[in-house]
Design a protein around this nucleic acid. Sequence first.
DNA 1: CCCAATACTTACCACCAGGTGAGTATTGAA
DNA 2: TTCAATACTCACCTGGTGGTAAGTATTGGG
Lengths: 121, 121
Amino acid sequence: MAAEARRGPYICGLDAAMDVVSGKWKSLILWELHHHGVRRFGELRRGLPGVSEKMLIQHLREMAEDGLVHREVYREVPPRVEYSLTEHGTSLNEALRALGAWGTARRQRLAAETPLNQVAG
Amino acid sequence: MAAEARRGPYICGLDAAMDVVSGKWKSLILWELHHHGVRRFGELRRGLPGVSEKMLIQHLREMAEDGLVHREVYREVPPRVEYSLTEHGTSLNEALRALGAWGTARRQRLAAETPLNQVAG
DNA sequence: CCCAATACTTACCACCAGGTGAGTATTGAA
DNA sequence: TTCAATACTCACCTGGTGGTAAGTATTGGG
């Protein structure tokens, strides 16, 4: 349970990458940490509306195991824990840029196709 | 149920992109179609060891709805159906290249960290 | 003594992605 | 009439992901 692959062995590189970002909130966590540099647990929770504490800590722990985020604990009262991207997390975010751009184009396509419906769920 | 987003509205572009590739076999299907150009249903099934017919057709239908793959039906006996990437599917594959490269680097990192364990599940 | 604040931790539960295995439709060949 | 081949289609089931809500540990302040 230390620093090993959860679902490996992987078939290809895409597998290995999708594994570490699969999780409802992981790409958002990546995004949040990328934009703020360092964030405390509570800041992340408030920054991701709808996330449960359970999933937030679970995702953060997995991402720490995967070497994407750094977890710094300050033994104070009340406790303080700070999360930040590691070098690997930063490079993953960069590797996701093209995908994010593709998704943005897709959103614009969808909005153009259904101009009256784009906001309604 | 035509060409609309399944989980939208999306928070960001990454959401919109992750949505269309989330699915156990979708990135593999993308890869397979990218490398072979055109593939029949049975060829895809044999090319993705372990996939169930149910999930393969389900993923292919969703990807067709999302405009990633083109489905060409030949009304012959026995029936023949050919799948290929659309322009959007091709561009998505290109957008995934950086992510695949990152994953390949991660695999190499994992193999270097646990040299005796890299093959065992 | 109790509460506040923070960062979890745990138990329980619902939903859905995905797997299994059987069935369908079509038509030519034996 | 039955079978083969292809591409599904359907019913059923399991496991895992994620949500909910309550509990824990710590210590200073009122």
